[in-house]
Simulated assay, not measured.
Amino acid sequence: MTEPVVVTDNSTVILHYDLTLEDGTAADSTRVNDKPAKMVLGDGSLTVNFESCLKGLKVGDKKKFTLPPDDVFGMPNPDNIYHVDRTKFGAEIELKEGAIVGFAQPDGSDLPGIIRTIAGHSVTVDFNHPLAGETLIFNVEVLDIVD
Rank of each mutant, 00 (worst) to 15 (best):
residue 38 K to M: 13
residue 74 G to H: 12
residue 73 F to T: 07
residue 58 K to T: 11
residue 106 P to V: 15
residue 64 K to V: 14
residue 45 S to I: 00
residue 66 T to W: 02
residue 20 T to K: 13
residue 74 G to M: 10
residue 23 D to N: 15
residue 27 A to E: 02
residue 47 T to I: 05
residue 98 G to C: 08
residue 68 P to G: 03
residue 95 L to E: 12
residue 46 L to V: 02
residue 85 D to M: 10
residue 84 V to D: 03
residue 103 F to D: 01
residue 90 G to N: 14
residue 23 D to F: 07
residue 105 Q to R: 14
residue 46 L to M: 09
residue 49 N to I: 10
residue 77 N to E: 13
residue 90 G to V: 08
residue 57 L to K: 05
residue 18 D to S: 10
residue 54 L to V: 03
residue 88 K to F: 11
residue 60 G to W: 04
residue 85 D to L: 12
residue 108 G to F: 12
residue 12 T to W: 06
residue 97 E to L: 04
residue 30 T to D: 04
residue 21 L to M: 10
residue 41 L to S: 00
residue 19 L to F: 05
residue 61 D to E: 06
residue 52 S to F: 00
residue 64 K to A: 04
residue 69 P to E: 07
residue 63 K to C: 02
residue 79 D to H: 09
residue 71 D to K: 02
residue 94 E to V: 14
residue 60 G to R: 08
residue 101 V to H: 11
residue 49 N to S: 13
residue 63 K to Y: 02
residue 100 I to G: 07
residue 13 V to E: 09
residue 15 L to H: 12
residue 60 G to P: 04
residue 21 L to K: 13
residue 96 K to E: 15
residue 76 P to H: 12
residue 38 K to Y: 05
residue 34 D to N: 11
residue 20 T to H: 08
residue 50 F to V: 01
residue 24 G to M: 11
residue 41 L to V: 05
residue 22 E to D: 08
residue 102 G to P: 13
residue 93 I to S: 09
residue 56 G to Y: 06
residue 90 G to W: 01
residue 73 F to N: 11
residue 54 L to G: 07
residue 42 G to W: 03
residue 64 K to S: 11
residue 26 A to H: 05
residue 95 L to G: 14
residue 23 D to L: 08
residue 93 I to T: 15
residue 23 D to K: 09
residue 89 F to V: 05
residue 64 K to Q: 10
residue 51 E to Q: 03
residue 101 V to D: 06
residue 108 G to R: 10
residue 82 Y to N: 08
residue 77 N to W: 02
residue 64 K to D: 09
residue 77 N to G: 07
residue 27 A to I: 04
residue 82 Y to T: 05
residue 37 A to P: 01
residue 68 P to Y: 00
residue 83 H to R: 14
residue 31 R to H: 11
residue 20 T to Y: 07
residue 77 N to I: 00
residue 54 L to K: 10
residue 105 Q to I: 05
residue 54 L to R: 09
residue 25 T to Y: 04
residue 43 D to T: 14
residue 42 G to I: 08
residue 88 K to Q: 14
residue 87 T to E: 14
residue 36 P to S: 11
residue 108 G to K: 08
residue 21 L to Y: 09
residue 34 D to Y: 00
residue 25 T to N: 11
residue 14 I to R: 07
residue 81 I to L: 08
residue 86 R to S: 12
residue 84 V to Q: 04
residue 17 Y to P: 01
residue 47 T to G: 13
residue 68 P to H: 00
residue 22 E to Y: 03
residue 33 N to Y: 13
residue 78 P to C: 03
residue 98 G to P: 07
residue 93 I to D: 07
residue 25 T to G: 10
residue 108 G to I: 12
